[in-house]
């Protein structure tokens, strides 16, 4: 009978999957994720793709903000850089999707590192404003560098092709998103078992102490910006190939704020939290809409009153979560998990 975890070495303390049970449930989840597209309709697949793309972006932002403690209001712009890079490489240079994908990531990382430059001097709110400037500048560039970005009309791209498979619908794209989410989440999770990841956490907790421990602040802060933006770039590339079009309107400041909301609601400094947050911010508004839609069918005259209520309910939900669970959805999950950890013999 299972009564607890007995760790004999540091390695087991650092393990991603603590025991067989967690491996088993992860396996179950994976199988369910594989079955999902075969039972779900177009709408659910679309939502799943959206959530997947958001997860990659949110994980990226969480690395920077949640783990390394550098606030960024420019995340949407980095996603945009990735998106535009993918679109330009695919349409102008006819590069295959599998090459566009990492290149979008690297291009976004390059811009991320440039924007991260001031982070050595600036902290907190000041850094926040510096990244806000980056967001505004990049947005301006998307709109006005017409010869490259196509200006306000943007760029239309064709469906991505991988080894001869054309991913031209939500069903096929789902598998790409799933694979990318798994790769990105695994990479992010493992990042924090390395020197680089631990350095990020040290910088977040107290940068002076981190420096005393021999961490080169500049180097690691720029790493954080670079890695975070790389994830953003990947997310942007997927987004553009998913929608098959890119315009500057896809990456407004509000989108950056939405990503910040995702990691705050999900849980700062938690990879799992990024996943929960991204799913929450994508799916819950739709659920509220569906429920209110039902009510509107019953009371058609209440439409003008019920529809605007969506935003209010969604806002209240976020506030509620933050008040009752400031550590985010991830913390709720840990509590539930701990409850069942030794269930039914938890005494």
């Amino acid at each position: 009978m299972y009564i607890g975890d007995f760790k004999e070495a540091y390695a087991s303390d650092q393990a991603v999957f603590v025991n067989t049970t967690s491996r088993f449930w992860l396996g179950v989840l994976f199988v369910l994720l594989l079955i999902f597209p075969f039972v779900a309709g177009d709408y659910f697949l679309f939502m799943a793709n959206l959530a997947g793309i958001a997860i990659i972006g949110a994980v990226g932002l969480n690395i920077l903000t949640g783990f390394a403690g550098q606030i960024s209001l420019g995340h949407a712009a980095f996603i945009g850089v990735g998106g535009y890079t993918a679109a330009i490489l695919a349409t102008r240079f006819n590069l295959p999707f599998l090459l566009c994908l990492p290149l979008s990531g690297f291009m976004a990382a390059f811009f991320g590192i440039i924007v991260g430059g001031p982070s050595l001097r600036l902290k907190g709110l000041y850094l926040c404003i510096a990244t806000l400037a980056a967001q505004l500048i990049l947005e301006f560039v998307f709109v006005h560098w017409e010869s490259v970005t196509g200006g306000i009309r943007g760029i239309n791209v064709s469906s991505p092709e991988i080894f001869g498979f054309v991913l031209d619908n939500d069903f096929k794209f789902y598998f790409l998103t799933l694979v990318m989410v798994i790769i990105c989440v695994t990479a992010a999770r493992n990042l924090f078992r390395t020197r680089v990841g631990r350095a990020f956490i040290a910088i977040r907790d107290r940068d002076i102490s981190a420096e005393l421990m021999g961490i080169n602040l500049m180097q690691y802060k720029l790493y954080a910006f670079g890695i975070s933006s790389f994830f953003a770039g990947i997310s942007g590339c997927l987004w553009v190939n998913f929608l098959k079009t890119v315009t500057p309107e896809h990456f407004p400041l509000m989108e950056s704020v939405r990503y910040l909301a995702m990691i705050i609601v999900g849980g700062m400094g938690s990879i799992l939290g990024s996943i929960f947050g991204a799913i929450f911010m994508t799916i819950v508004p739709e659920m509220i809409k569906t429920i209110l839609g039902l009510l509107v069918n019953i009371f058609p005259t209440a439409m003008s009153f019920l529809f605007p209520l969506q935003q209010v309910i969604f806002g209240l939900l976020i506030v509620g979560f933050l008040i009752f669970e400031p550590h985010g959805l991830a913390e709720i999950w840990y509590r539930i998990k701990n409850y069942f950890h030794l269930w039914p013999f938890d005494h």
């Binding site: 177009d42 709408y43 679309f46 939502m47 959206l50 939500d170 929608l243 994508t282 739709e286």
Partner: peptide, 14 residues
């Protein structure tokens, strides 16, 4: 944008 596309797909599917 996202919600509008979702609505489109939902209406088409349903």
């Amino acid at each position: 944008l996202k919600r509008a596309i979702a609505s489109f797909k939902k209406l088409m599917a349903k």
